[in-house]
């Protein structure tokens, strides 16, 4: 009786999440997979017939009568991966020293700066991006200041370039890198660092052989958390990027909201999903191997 009672409670607790995520999370993902193999209709809809040219357009098999292969799609995919990787790298270079600094502060100051780094989590993403629009515009604050002090005579054209996109992504992603890094740095065993220095290792050797391996899980965690939302991002390139800053997310958005080719858009987002799954599986495997070594 008690056992049956427990099963009943468990079923009651688990049914809502199973139904909800089954219907509204799993099914939509499966439908994307399905749509990516359907024929685009003439006026925006779909025809329920198998069609592999959606992928052909992207990866290079195409019958010129049906669909045209354009290398631009792979180029934009490569660019998206590159921008995301650069964002991870820059976030890491910015956060690593700061995480060290914050972890060495007296308690009261440490709390203040930890609060300051979490505050952006609570403020609107679009508002924070919009600020960079104000700063980078040709008549924006950066150019006004630089011209004012005589550093340049013509406004710099930063807005609507790849640099602006990466800058914007670093800006919105940096708190996500900071927190996992901080917890790794904060848990560092300082006795090991002192031992390494006492035994005659140089600062560089100590960093490479002691500090870096110990903080690697934090680096890896932060990198995954920053990389994944960056690859599929379309808001940042939409607001700050021009034609040269276009990313795969913008392509997907265009296919759904202006070009109205849903099957092609689905094929493009299957690629985003594949990249994300590859990164997740890869990082899990890496974390496991690291864990295995330590054990």
């Amino acid at each position: 009786m008690a056992i049956r009672r427990q099963t009943l409670v468990l079923a009651t607790l688990l049914t809502p999440v199973t139904l909800f995520l089954g219907v509204f999370f799993l099914l939509p993902l499966l439908i994307i997979a399905l749509f990516s193999f359907l024929t685009p209709g003439l006026y925006g809809g779909v025809e329920w017939a198998f069609y592999h040219w959606n992928y052909g357009r992207i990866f290079g098999w195409a019958d010129d009568i049906i669909e045209v292969y354009e290398p631009i799609y792979l180029q934009i995919l490569a660019r998206s991966l590159g921008f995301a990787a650069l964002t991870v790298l820059l976030c890491l270079l910015l956060c690593y020293p700061v995480a060290f600094w914050v972890s060495r502060l007296p308690n009261r100051w440490r709390m203040l700066f930890l609060f300051l780094i979490t505050l952006p989590f609570f403020s609107s993403l679009i508002v924070r991006l919009y600020a960079w629009l104000l700063i980078l515009k040709p008549s924006g604050i950066l150019n006004t200041v630089l011209i004012g002090v005589g550093a340049i005579s013509e406004p710099l054209e930063i807005l609507y370039t790849p640099a602006a996109v990466v800058l914007g992504m670093v800006y919105v992603m940096v708190p996500f890198m900071f927190l996992p890094l901080y917890s790794a740095v904060d848990n560092l065993d300082r006795a090991l660092i002192e031992a390494s220095m006492d035994l005659g290792a140089t600062r560089l050797q100590t960093f490479l052989k002691v500090v870096l391996p110990q903080t690697l899980p934090g680096i890896l965690g932060g990198a995954v958390i920053v990389f994944i939302p960056s690859v599929g991002n379309f808001i940042v390139p939409d607001v700050l990027g021009g034609a040269k800053g276009l990313m795969i997310g913008n392509l997907v958005e265009q296919q759904f909201l202006s070009a109205r080719n849903w099957p092609f858009g689905s094929a493009l987002s299957m690629i985003v999903m594949a990249v994300v799954l590859a990164v997740l599986l890869g990082s899990t495997a890496a974390a496991k191997r690291k864990g295995g070594q330590n054990a």
């Binding site: 999370f25 939509p28 993902l29 439908i31 994307i32 994944i228 939302p229 690859v231 599929g232 991002n233 379309f234 997310g249 997907v252 958005e253 759904f256 858009g265 689905s266 987002s269 985003v272 999903m273 994300v276 997740l280």
Partner: peptide, 10 residues
């Protein structure tokens, strides 16, 4: 972990 654009269009 799913990028929001994928979930959105799905």
């Amino acid at each position: 972990m799913m990028p929001d654009i994928v979930l959105g269009i799905g």
